[in-house]
Every structure is written in structure tokens, then in C-alpha cells.
């Protein structure tokens, strides 16, 4: 085979042959990230709101329920993602009839990501000052009004930053899940790049992931800043 120089590797990373393998993996990854994100945002937001409101100092104090819910969340968070994914795969089989491929993996991914996003939502909402909640209360606002008209809008810039962090975590967890039969960029990077020493493919897959992460971080920061600027808070 002979020695391959760095330059040749880089050249090969951008060749059509490499991209024929990488591009379908990009689709798989984006597919998984998109649907995992949708599930994570929906359930994570609800989880975060529940954690904040049922706290003993929250607007709907249910301390015992809160302790149990918090304990379960901590339980999931303390396990490495890989273990949670392995544990959740049978769940996918139950729901979808199979435990491999991008679709099956979305459920496993969501289960690992919802507790994390839930905690981030919780801390974002906790930044809203008690005085604002109290003002709303004093005007006769119901809990639903407080959540929808005070907590979420006031926390929006912070929620967007939490969201950005989560999407990036979802991308890296997706790469991890890829090695467990989900496919996508992580799968390509490990299967070709690591196991078969195809450094060019590894390089291409990694570059794509870096670009995606940078783009999402930039979009999140920009949006969050835009809202803060519009509210004249920065």
C-alpha cells in the first residue's frame, strides 16, 4: 500500500469517492438529530416546567412528587449515554418492531436527551425573578398564565441557549448511537475511519460534524442575542 502523506489524505477526504459514502450518512444524522430534537424539546420543556413548578418554592408546590421526578431524572443523567441507549433499544423494538437503524435510534436518543434538556430548561426558568411571578399572582394570574405569559417568555433567550447546548449534545450522542447500529456520521467515522484505517473518510465525517455544530452554535447565539438586544437587556 505504501505510505500515504497527509496531503494525500486531505485531498482524498474531499474526493467524490469519499463523499459518496459521507453524504448519505449526513442525511441519516440530520434525520436522527431533527426528530430527536423535536421529541427532546417537546418532552424536555414539559419536564423542565414540571420540575420548576412542583418545587416546594414553585407556583404549584408538590414536594414529594418533585423529589421522585427529580430522582428519576438524576438516575437517567448519572448513567452514561451509551448504557441508556443500550437499555432503551428493546423499547424501540417494542414500539417500532426493530432495534437498529436511524428510526429505532431516535427513541433511545430522546430518552437520553430529555432529562438533560429538562434540567437545562429548569435552570433557565429559575432565572426568572420571583418578583415578576409575584406581580402576576397579585393580578390574579392562574398558574397556566404564569407559565405561558411570564416564565417562558421571560426565560426565552436563556431557553434558546439551553436548546443550542442540547442540540449539540444530541449530535454527539447521535454519533455515539451510530456506532451501536443507528448509522449516520458516527457510524461512518468508526466503521471506515477507525476500523479500516480510512483516515480520509474519518476526516471528512469529522469535518462535517464540526461544521454542523459550529453552525448550530452560531445560530443559537445569534438568535438569543437578537432577542436580548430587542428587549434592550444587553
Amino acid at each position: 500500500m505504501g505510505r500515504i502523506t497527509l496531503l494525500e489524505t486531505i485531498e482524498s477526504a474531499f474526493s467524490a469517492k469519499t463523499w459518496a459514502i459521507v453524504v448519505p450518512a449526513i442525511y441519516d444524522t440530520l434525520y436522527m438529530v431533527l426528530f430527536t430534537t423535536i421529541l427532546t424539546v417537546f418532552f424536555g420543556l414539559i419536564l423542565g416546567i414540571v420540575l420548576v413548578t412542583t418545587d416546594k418554592d414553585g407556583i404549584y408546590p408538590r414536594p414529594r412528587f418533585n423529589a421522585v421526578a427529580g430522582g428519576i431524572v438524576n438516575g437517567f443523567r448519572s448513567l452514561p449515554s451509551m448504557i441508556v441507549i443500550i437499555l432503551t433499544l428493546p423499547l424501540s423494538r417494542l414500539i417500532l418492531g426493530k432495534s437498529y437503524g436511524p428510526k429505532a435510534c431516535i427513541i433511545a436518543l430522546a430518552v437520553t436527551c430529555i432529562p438533560m434538556f429538562g434540567r437545562l430548561v429548569e435552570s433557565s426558568i429559575l432565572e426568572v425573578s420571583k418578583g415578576k411571578i409575584e406581580a402576576a399572582r397579585s393580578m390574579g394570574a392562574k398558574n397556566r398564565d404564569i407559565v405561558l405569559k411570564v416564565l417562558l417568555p421571560e426565560a426565552l433567550p436563556s431557553l434558546i441557549r439551553s436548546f443550542t447546548i442540547s442540540v449539540i449534545a444530541i449530535i454527539s450522542t447521535t454519533a455515539l448511537a451510530g456506532t451501536l447500529g443507528a448509522g449516520g456520521l458516527g457510524d461512518v467515522a468508526v466503521r471506515f475511519g477507525y476500523s479500516r484505517f480510512k483516515t480520509d473518510i474519518l476526516l471528512a465525517a469529522v469535518l462535517v460534524m464540526i461544521v454542523i455544530v459550529q453552525a448550530i452554535q452560531f445560530a443559537g447565539n445569534t438568535l438569543s442575542k437578537f432577542i436580548l438586544k430587542r428587549r434592550h437587556l444587553i
Binding site: G131, A136, D145
Partner: peptide, 26 residues
Amino acid sequence: IGIIFQHFNLLDARTVAENVAFPLEI
């Protein structure tokens, strides 16, 4: 029963008009 506070407790996400509209929405 209206109440005003030392630190105002206005909603930063809302304009002046929207802040005043808040209790009416409620």
C-alpha cells in the same frame, strides 16, 4: 387590588403597552 413594587417587576419580554395589557389579558 392593584400593587406596585420597589423593583417594579415589569416583564422584560413585553413592551410598555403589552405590560399594561397583561392584567387585562388575565
